[in-house]
Design a protein around this nucleic acid. Structure first.
Lengths: 163, 163
DNA sequence: CTCAAAGGTTGAGGGTGTCAATTGTTTATG
DNA sequence: CATAAACAATTGACACCCTCAACCTTTGAG
């Protein structure tokens, strides 16, 4: 009763991405199990990111740009690398942020091909609020027992080091 | 030496999203610390998702749609809810998938306003390969000690239950 | 000096997303 | 029953994100 027919009872109420692979526990590797679970939880929570960015009148990508522009200047090409996107894309991205006076292009003295990006006063202020907002843990973490949080933190720190 | 001036030495080599908040350990809540770390790792790895989808000639969003269309039919409005987007957006999304014969619209008998979405044979096959690919854990998890993987799995299962 | 390579921009083209308005259908209400 | 309100999907206008190919300027190597 799966492929087609009268399976009309699916119109609502099912947890979004719920049914993935990892049901059979014995088979798949431990890493794959853990990854599938993690992906599930995170994906659910990443759906809110556009709304979060919108709280600051930013698109998701603009939020990422502000995030990267934390300390010091960044060449446009470097930003393109960080965003894993084409350089030509960054032009428009920065155009819009510059129009809103959140970011400034200033051409480098050493290499006049390069344009360095700097946050304006307003940009830095907005970034501060944005980062604080992003640091707020999602509900599923806020309601986690303390020991789990500690364990999770340890595991993640180890992973970051090894990476 | 932070705001402006000759900090031109930033053109490359820094790990992308690295410098977030969570540096001061004592201060912020445990949940916030763990969340920031998790976000860091996950964000780094979510950047590859477009490339992953492209392996199957799919855009990221198309991949999500296929993911949701796993078992049984889904009304378009339901899909819009799962994707947290406007219904009008789903129309074009499905148009393109239908043009590629991965998905079919069939109008419901019970309620003739509704159109139910079903995977075609080819769509189901593609989805299978896609899901298998997505289940492959990223490097930072593949190289995790077994005990960490077990602990992580346990924590995530508990979180999913409580959620 | 010459020329290849690199940084950034432009233009064409397509996917993603919103909002407002429209059509057709269902359901509730008088 | 008739009519109005609510709902599912679509359309059109508009903006953003993204890629590719072509281009210009600057740099650095031979």
């Amino acid at each position: 009763m799966n492929g087609l027919g009268e399976s009309q009872n699916e119109q609502a109420g099912r947890p979004p991405g719920a049914r993935a692979q990892g049901a059979e526990d014995g088979e798949a590797g431990l890493a794959q199990q853990a990854w599938t679970l993690l992906f599930e939880l995170l994906h659910t929570h990443m759906r809110n990111f556009p709304a979060l960015a919108a709280e600051f009148d930013l698109s998701p990508v603009q939020a990422h740009v502000l995030r990267q522009l934390g300390e010091g200047a960044l060449a446009m090409s470097t930003l393109a690398t960080y965003l894993s996107c084409d350089a030509s894309n960054v032009t428009g991205l920065v155009d819009r942020l510059e129009a809103r006076k959140l970011v400034e292009r200033r051409s480098s003295e050493q290499d006049r091909r390069v344009k360095m990006l700097v946050l304006t006063e307003a940009g830095a202020e907005l970034r501060g609020r944005l980062m604080a907002r992003m640091a707020l843990p999602p509900p599923f973490m806020a309601s986690m027992p303390e020991e789990d949080l500690l364990a999770l933190g340890d595991i993640m720190r180890r992973a970051l080091k090894t990476q």
